[in-house]
């Protein structure tokens, strides 16, 4: 059992989920409440990673941050190395890949809030920011919990993007899914089996813990 790969994958999932929540909150707020006529374009853009194959995403990350692109050269001058084959590269790929999984539950939650409550908060003199943190966010706890659980789970099981940009470096980019892939390709079915079972158990335990912890956030089914 490759514990190093498991630790790496857990770290990647936590970092990705944390970054995505920070990015998704303002995005979801804008998508939920903006009245711009071109809002549908932003919605389509934000949902693109749902439709795009992870290989395409990985390919774009490779090309966009390769040394032949201006962005890649800028990154290299800044950090001294290319983004591919690094943990940061995996984080960038994962954030892009799981973006809709963070935004969509939050948008749904925000839209489910009775607008009267928001109006009341504003009429009573609270700023937009304070309304967001004291009215909208507390009422969106279930959406927030779903967004965290989904991005975490989605990153944990991610394969295609990592295969494209990772370079399979032990302890840096060899995630658990890549490790299983390697073991199967090498014909080590017994090892692949053990790793897969541990992966299955850990995934279930982590998800069960997240859902148990947020149990109170779901007092009822969302449609009831």
């Amino acid at each position: 059992m490759n514990w190093q790969a498991l630790e790496l994958t857990l770290r990647l999932s936590c970092v990705t989920a944390a970054i995505l929540i920070v990015l998704a909150l303002p995005t979801a707020y804008w998508v939920a409440y903006s009245r711009r006529p071109w809002k549908f374009l932003v919605q389509a853009l934000a949902s693109l990673p749902l439709v795009m194959p992870p290989t395409v995403l990985g390919f774009y990350v490779l090309v966009a941050f390769g040394s032949s692109s201006p962005l890649g050269r800028l990154w290299q001058r800044w950090t001294g190395h290319t983004l591919a084959f690094t943990f940061a590269g995996l984080v960038v790929g994962s954030v892009l890949y799981s973006f809709p999984f963070a935004v969509q539950p939050l948008v749904n939650s925000f839209l489910a809030i009775d607008p009267k409550l928001i109006d009341a908060s504003r009429v009573l003199g609270a700023s937009r920011l304070s309304t967001f943190f004291r009215v909208i966010l507390p009422l969106s706890a279930s959406g927030l919990a779903t967004a965290i659980a989904l991005t975490f789970a989605h990153t944990f099981g991610e394969f295609g993007v990592v295969l494209m940009v990772g370079g399979d470096i032990p302890g840096v980019t060899r995630t658990i899914s890549i490790d299983v892939f390697d073991q199967v390709q090498a014909g080590n079915y017994a090892a692949a089996n053990v790793t897969s079972l541990v992966l299955l158990a850990v995934s279930f335990l982590v998800l069960a813990a997240i859902y148990a912890w947020n149990r109170r956030a779901w007092p009822r089914a969302p449609w009831a």
């Binding site: 490779l62 090309v63 941050f65 390769g66 032949s68 290319t82 591919a84 084959f85 370079g167």
Partner: peptide, 8 residues
Amino acid sequence: EFVVSGNA
């Protein structure tokens, strides 16, 4: 491909 794309 890792060399062609300028990453290695």
